[in-house]
């Protein structure tokens, strides 16, 4: 059987619109602000966080999602959200309407552990099929509208990252994907890592998560080209 027929016989594997609450098979979720019964309990939960993503104020444990690295230590107590709209800030300066139907994205690995890149690879696969939104991955920054940065920006990748950014034509946007690119994650800021993409290039939109699920990344890319609001 030729590959052509084999492909046709597989049918459509792309799934419909994302459900409002994602199951854990699609996304680990993100912690969200939770109220506990006593301030002591709240302080205990916040102290579990190794990266300072949780902060206790009286009985409420607030969350800085950019710092969360999915260590799962708070999951038994803290509430987690299971939506897809993870990108922030809400008011992103969009491209003009000419970009609404198609943008090209250049991915830059600035020290990623491999899991964000792996989720990005899934985007172009049949399950998520990024192309249906008119969003394409391009190998050259010279044809890219969006620079998608993963990793905390290591000292030895800061130079190449800036060169790639400079090489892009205007208007251009930068999307920081994952806890590392958002805040340095577990690695930075430290002796060889910066505290995220914003330390090297101006970041327009950030998707937290370690790694963010493919549907959250799609949401951010669609928000950048004005197809839907970020959050």
């Amino acid at each position: 059987m030729s590959w052509f027929w084999r492909g046709l016989r597989a049918g459509v594997l792309t799934e419909g619109p994302a459900p409002e609450a994602l199951p854990e098979s699609l996304s680990p979720g993100l912690p969200r602000a939770t109220e506990f019964s006593t301030p002591a309990q709240a302080a205990e939960i916040a102290a579990r966080c190794p990266t300072g993503a949780l902060e206790a104020q009286d009985r409420v444990v607030g969350v800085q999602p950019d710092r969360c690295v999915d260590c799962m230590r708070c999951k038994s107590a803290q509430e987690w959200r299971h939506d897809v709209r993870w990108a922030h800030p809400d008011a992103v300066e969009r491209f003009g309407s000419r970009f609404k139907h198609s943008i090209h994205v250049r991915i830059i690995d600035a020290g990623d552990c491999g899991s964000c890149l792996n989720e990005l690879a899934q985007l172009t696969g049949p399950s998520y099929n990024l192309h249906r939104f008119g969003i394409f991955i391009t190998p050259t920054p010279r044809q890219a509208d969006v620079l998608l940065v993963v990793g905390p920006v290591t000292r030895q990748m800061a130079g190449p990252l800036k060169v790639a950014y400079e090489a892009m034509p205007s208007p251009k946007r930068v999307l920081a994907v994952g806890a590392c690119a958002a805040s340095g994650g577990i690695f930075g800021p430290s002796v060889m890592s910066a505290g995220g993409a914003a330390d090297a290039v101006p970041v327009d939109l950030t998707v937290p998560g370690c790694p963010p699920p493919p549907l959250a990344i799609i949401g951010a890319l669609r928000a950048l080209c004005g197809q839907e609001p970020p959050a």
């Binding site: 597989a10 098979s25 699609l26 680990p28 690295v69 989720e119």
Partner: peptide, 30 residues
């Protein structure tokens, strides 16, 4: 070999989902 690559990607996604369903993280962190 794009058809094969797509089918492998789909299979990989199924393994990721199985992992996520079992332990709450697709890459078995935590």
């Amino acid at each position: 070999l794009s058809v094969a690559a797509s089918q492998a990607l789909w299979l990989e996604e199924q393994f990721l989902r199985i992992s996520g369903e079992l332990c709450g993280h697709r890459y078995l962190f935590g």
